[in-house]
Design a protein around this nucleic acid. Structure first.
Lengths: 364, 364
DNA sequence: ATGAAAGCGCTAACAG
DNA sequence: CTGTTAGCGCTTTCAT
């Protein structure tokens, strides 16, 4: 459009030196006389030069870019604040380590195809993939070209072809349920069998029930499995633990579950309703209130995620903070390690679990 | 890292032709014999070739990239769902027009500097800047290098050095206030003087009050100015219109405003509290309820933004939908027009206003 | 229809 | 300390 962007040649000519020297100066390499450096500096200012990132990338064979690919069907979690947390924290880490993060959104087939093309074309030095589907078409691509990539969002029950990051759904659900039932907090996540054993302990609640989100959503199966395990450890004699499989994360679904249990006459002060996320917990509490129960006076309810909903309801939710704001940070760190060829870089199949926090509030 | 990515030469060699021909084939140019094309296709599959985006960008002198730069202090609107709307809609438009959108987050001085370097280095063909500060350091850079860019977020009261996009705060505030006071809906935004004139008309409410957000936030001054204008048109004899300048967008601030007015004894059924956004409106309504008022029975309250808060409160808010989901779409379209050199591309100083919708619900 | 050759703007040995 | 010379992988005339 405009009259020829100035190049390194223009600088060299104006500074009366060779362009190799200018390149050395630009890259801070040794071997540029102070006087020459000064002339180069001046020339750069004069013609308002700045190096072409494309040319530099081609010559160095690296772009200094990390691409974060967000692959969510727009109806889904695109507007989930978690997504923004990942972007922001990955950006912070990349910046700190000297890389530039660029975020790509995969919304439809066309953009997916474009992104695949970029990836194949070596657009970035490394990739972070946030996807909810474990059969994402980028995964085989990463593997085939042995591209540096880290994935998150598919859960950790199935091994992925590249290193993964996830919240410690298992540990946190165990800790949460243990707290709700026993009132005990802290202690290791996966309790050893002796501390876990027995119904001899005095329990605050002896009738846990679970409202699960869609089981094909990330974390859902992990949470449910962990729930079942810890319950059978704490209540080895209890066998008819109610589990409601909600087809979605809507409040009305949780309400339906609660209503069904109420009609079966199962809700007593021994009951605790463990919900797979905060939204479901809110729905459960509101329905319990409608039915005349008190929370936690009659029934205890817990959430998961520590979303904004957790504090805007009364009683405020006892829940789990997944620390999504660490997710991107960790992912970016891992891919950079891989690019740098760090010996301790995570390997395909490995999943780094991010520690969670039990947030004890009023509801359980 | 791995044994040499295959290049166009490798394809040419395997297909028994020259790399120029392969290039032609790849770019869909005429002049490749069907049989040759077939051999090339086969060779590409055989060695799993895909062209280097960097090399291609260098040779073509364009990257086919549009960069969306989000410049928000992390405490601010980074987690605003609006931001995600812009990203998603800009992405959709870019994809549709054959470009790839990449989003860059400017969180601190380091990332800001990195981004400036990329921009100077011709990283993308065009830029979308979403910033809240009208002295963003990228603006002079865009101007100096006559780079294709479109800005949004700084309001439209001050001319910007590049084309801008914003919601039609003026028109929508006028329409909103007109509706709240008169019950009339529809009609043009900027009413002509004859339809606007006079207090002869029967008004539902004759005592509007305004709760403004921080005046340095985008849209805030536009909304306030429009409020003052339409009110003086509808109520030419009224001069002491209460305006509360909230230092933030918090519900408690709106509550404070309402409480102050209540103590002054000004709240009657003639009153309408116009709030600069939905959050403030929610705060106002909750405080009014606390003070024993009914909404809209006693006092009418309106919001702005049509956020999720608008429907989660009782009564649901009468508010304005800014259609943020069109913002990115329009911005991307504009920058692409500019890149293509379209004759009708927007010029620096111009602001494209996005039409808004009055959303009539229960609160006013 | 195809090949040869000259860039795109920069980095990186290698001499001197 | 500095200049020369090859590339990086691809596009694009210009001949043939």
């Amino acid at each position: 459009m405009t009259a020829h962007r100035p190049t390194i040649y223009d600088v060299a000519e104006r500074a009366g030196t060779s362009y190799a020297t200018v390149s050395r100066y630009l890259n801070g390499r040794a071997g540029v006389a102070p006087k020459t450096a000064e002339r180069i500096e001046q020339a750069i200012r004069d013609i308002d030069y700045s190096p072409s990132s494309t040319a530099r990338s081609l010559a160095q064979q690296r772009t200094q870019l990390i691409a974060l690919i967000i692959h969510v069907s727009s109806t889904d979690a695109a507007y989930d604040p978690n997504t923004m947390e990942i972007i922001a924290s990955a950006n912070a880490r990349a910046t700190r380590e000297g890389w530039q993060l660029v975020t790509l959104l995969s919304e439809n087939d066309t953009s997916r195809a474009n992104i695949e093309r970029l990836v194949s074309g070596g657009f970035a030095d490394g990739y972070l993939l946030y996807t909810l589907q474990d059969d994402d078409p980028l995964l085989p691509l990463f593997a085939r070209r042995s591209i540096h990539a880290v994935i998150s969002g598919t859960g950790y029950l199935h091994p992925m072809p590249c290193p993964a990051v996830d919240a410690d759904n298992t540990g946190s659900m165990r800790e949460l349920v243990r707290y709700v039932l026993t009132g005990e907090t802290g202690g290791g996540a996966h309790g050893t069998s002796d501390t876990a054993a027995g119904g001899s302990r005095r329990l605050r609640r002896t009738r846990p029930a679970y409202i699960s989100g869609p089981v094909n959503m990330p974390g859902a199966p992990e949470r449910l499995t962990a729930f079942n395990e810890i319950v059978s450890e704490l209540l080895p004699d209890e066998h008819d633990i109610p589990v409601y499989y909600s087809p979605d994360w809507r409040q009305t679904s949780a309400a339906a579950a609660v209503r069904a249990w109420h009609e079966d006459g199962v809700l007593t002060t021994r009951d605790a309703v463990i919900c797979a996320n905060d939204t479901l917990a809110v729905g459960a509490i509101e329905e319990l209130h409608r039915l005349g129960y008190e929370v936690p006076g009659d029934v205890a309810v817990s959430g998961f995620d520590n979303s904004s909903a957790a504090t805007s309801i009364t009683p405020q939710l006892t829940t789990v903070d997944q620390h999504m704001e660490r997710r991107g940070w960790v992912m970016a760190g891992m891919v950079i390690d891989a690019i740098r060829g760090a010996s301790d870089a995570a390997k395909p199949g490995e999943t780094v679990l991010i520690a969670t926090d039990l947030v004890v509030r009023a509801s359980a």
